[in-house]
């Protein structure tokens, strides 16, 4: 279990992480979300003792990382796949890490096999693709077969098969009883792998809890109704105080009344239902909703249209 209490980190007058407290439990994948510049990477480095916290602290299974006799047996981490020396061979990179904790050489072969890099063990890392470096970083994290794993954007550079493999890998680690703390910008991926979420914005905690609770609490829920008598149903629902918006010709979206009530109301009217579907916004919707005021950097909402000052073919400067 990772437990952070009152973590604070300042860079001059900028407060990157502000009194942040959270827990990542064993047997679960805890997703760590936040907009760019929210302080996720700084927090992860503080969890690993790489950045010194100005206030607060982190305990891993009730201990500081520095207190473990064999740290790699307790915590494995992948912060950035680029943290490798380009002229060092993959196996030597791992062997140097393993040796520092007195781990046997056979662990190097084992983790290389685990991530599918056995065939390139003797190759220099400089020639690796981003995806291969990512797998090498994962292998390094797994060297000590640790109880706690910390991953920053582990799916970066992986192809679709690799992402699918990563999903199974992380869920498998958690199923083994380990604590998996993982950040990602791929919210669709996070929705599939995370059990719990820690969401931060501008260095502060916005949400901590199960993914379902986050989505239900933050994202919009509605019921889609499709019927030949949709106008009649819409009128009846409006009279009951529901908010009704029109979909296509034969459907409406209803907010404020659940599917069971709508079904009973339709039956009472003698209306035929072709669809009665409760819907909830995605994790992405919920994330955008709760972090709307906590974004450090914003793009131009017109992005995708012509760039101001340039001339569209055959047009005038925009």
């Amino acid at each position: 279990m990772i437990e952070a209490r009152g973590l604070t980190k300042r860079y001059g007058s900028t407060v990157a992480v502000d009194d942040l407290s959270f827990r990542a439990e064993g047997n679960r994948v805890t997703g760590f979300l936040g907009p760019n510049g929210a302080g996720k990477s700084t927090t992860m480095r503080m969890v690993l003792g790489l950045d010194r916290a100005d206030a607060g602290g982190v305990r891993i299974d009730q201990k500081r990382l520095i207190d473990f006799a064999v740290p790699m047996r307790e915590v494995g981490a992948l912060l950035d796949a680029a943290y490798v020396h380009p002229t060092r061979k993959a196996s030597e990179h791992l062997w140097a890490l393993a040796a520092s904790n007195g781990l046997p050489r056979k662990r190097v072969d084992a983790v290389l096999g685990l991530v599918g890099l056995s065939e390139v063990a003797g190759k220099r890392v400089g020639g690796f693709s981003l995806g291969m470096k990512q797998r090498l970083g994962l292998a390094g994290a797994m060297l000590g077969d640790p109880h706690t794993l910390v991953f920053d954007e582990p799916a970066n550079g992986l192809d679709p098969e690799g992402i699918q493999w990563m999903r199974r890998f992380l869920k498998g680690l958690a199923a083994d009883g380990r604590t998996v703390f993982v950040s990602s910008h791929l919210l669709s991926e996070m929705a599939l792998i995370a059990d719990d979420l820690v969401v931060i914005g501008k260095g502060r905690l916005i949400f901590q809890g199960p993914v379902d609770a986050f989505v239900k609490g933050a994202a919009r829920s509605w019921v889609t109704v499709r019927s030949p008598q949709v106008a009649q149903i819409a009128t009846a629902l409006a009279e009951q105080g529901a908010t009704v918006t029109s979909g296509d010709d034969a459907s409406i979206d209803v907010v404020g009344v659940d599917a069971k009530t709508i079904g009973e109301l339709a039956a009472g009217l003698g209306a035929t239902l072709h669809e009665l579907a409760p819907r909830t916004g995605s994790l992405e919707d919920a994330f955008l909703e709760v972090t709307a005021g906590a974004q450090e950097y914003r793009g131009d909402p017109r992005a995708g249209s012509a760039i101001p000052g340039t001339t569209a073919p055959g047009g005038t400067p925009s």
Binding site: L48, A77, L79, Y83, L97, S100
Partner: peptide
């Protein structure tokens, strides 16, 4: 970084 993560001392 991986060096100091593996050997925090």
């Amino acid at each position: 970084r991986p060096t100091f993560t593996a050997v925090p001392r």
